[in-house]
């Protein structure tokens, strides 16, 4: 269960103007803008659901994921993830959640992937027999056995993402945050990643919150979407309801979402 209630977070951002003169002036005086990254966000995600968290770049998706995983303290609002307040119980929560950032890696670059897994076992203090079971299951389900002994920097992006998914699930978390897990992947890897997400959700009841710009990810995984824009929740409901509205009839899914963005002035 994930609950967000009135979460608000703003940042101070330095303003930059073009030209050498402005750059010199900025040596002495600098102007700032206050950006409301997340502006009163509330929603609930029941256990065992997959939710598509969508919105344009800079909408506040990453900020809210940071809040939910405990690495950013909001200015206002309350939040409970697996019964814990993320920023107050960060380390405790860490054992209950898995996080994948599609653009970054959590594995060690220069060593075989299996060594990274072993170290994660020690970091999360997973008992050896339990670790072996969950590792073998993940290696099988994600079909990574062929390159698990290869250093990370030598595998393809699709292979890497599958290894990342395995790494984030070694400690059997109840909740999984996926931040653009399919970015830059080829068709085969995308399908494999989607199939796997469906599997762990169906078989192990893992709650999944997924951000993506690929609407086919959403279509393949869930009907429940939350649309965020300019730091506010704009829509929280089913994709099918959006699709069946009059304006959307017969349009491809990308067009529907673009229309949704436009409708909210994003």
């Amino acid at each position: 269960m994930i609950t967000l209630n009135g979460i608000h977070k703003s940042f101070k951002v330095a303003r930059r103007k073009p030209g050498a003169k402005a750059a010199l002036a900025a040596m002495f005086r600098r102007e700032y803008d206050i950006v409301n990254a997340v502006d009163g966000v509330s929603f609930d995600i029941p256990d065992g659901e997959i939710v598509g968290y969508i919105g344009p770049n800079g909408a506040g998706k990453s900020t809210s994921i940071k809040v939910m995983s405990g690495i950013l303290i909001p200015d206002e609002g309350t939040c409970a993830v697996a019964g814990l307040t993320p920023w107050a119980d960060r380390k405790k929560l860490a054992r209950r959640i898995g996080v994948v950032f599609g653009q970054r890696t959590q594995l060690w670059w220069d060593v075989p992937i299996i060594d990274s897994f072993d170290l994660l076992r020690d970091i999360y203090r997973v008992p050896q027999d339990e670790y072996k079971r969950s590792r073998d299951r993940l290696v099988g389900a994600l079909d990574i056995g062929a390159f698990v002994n290869t250093p990370l920097r030598q595998v393809s992006l699709g292979q890497r993402m599958r290894a990342e998914l395995a790494a984030s699930l070694l400690h059997s978390p109840d909740i999984l945050f996926l931040d653009e897990p399919t970015i830059g992947l080829d068709a085969v890897s995308k399908l494999a990643v989607r199939r796997f997400i469906r599997e762990i959700n169906a078989e192990r009841g893992v709650t999944v919150l997924l951000t993506t710009h690929d609407m086919h990810d959403i279509e393949a995984l869930t009907d429940h979407i939350i649309l965020i824009g300019k730091g506010r929740i704009l829509y929280n409901g089913t994709m099918s309801a959006v699709k069946s509205s009059k304006t959307a009839e017969g349009l491809p899914v990308e067009e529907i979402v673009a229309g949704l963005y436009k409708e909210h002035g994003l």
């Binding site: 405990g70 054992r95 950032f101 970054r104 999360y124």
Partner: peptide, 13 residues
């Protein structure tokens, strides 16, 4: 700069 510090924060150590 690389953002890897966030990853350290996500671990129970």
């Amino acid at each position: 700069v690389s953002g890897d510090f966030d990853r350290l924060l996500l671990r129970p150590r």
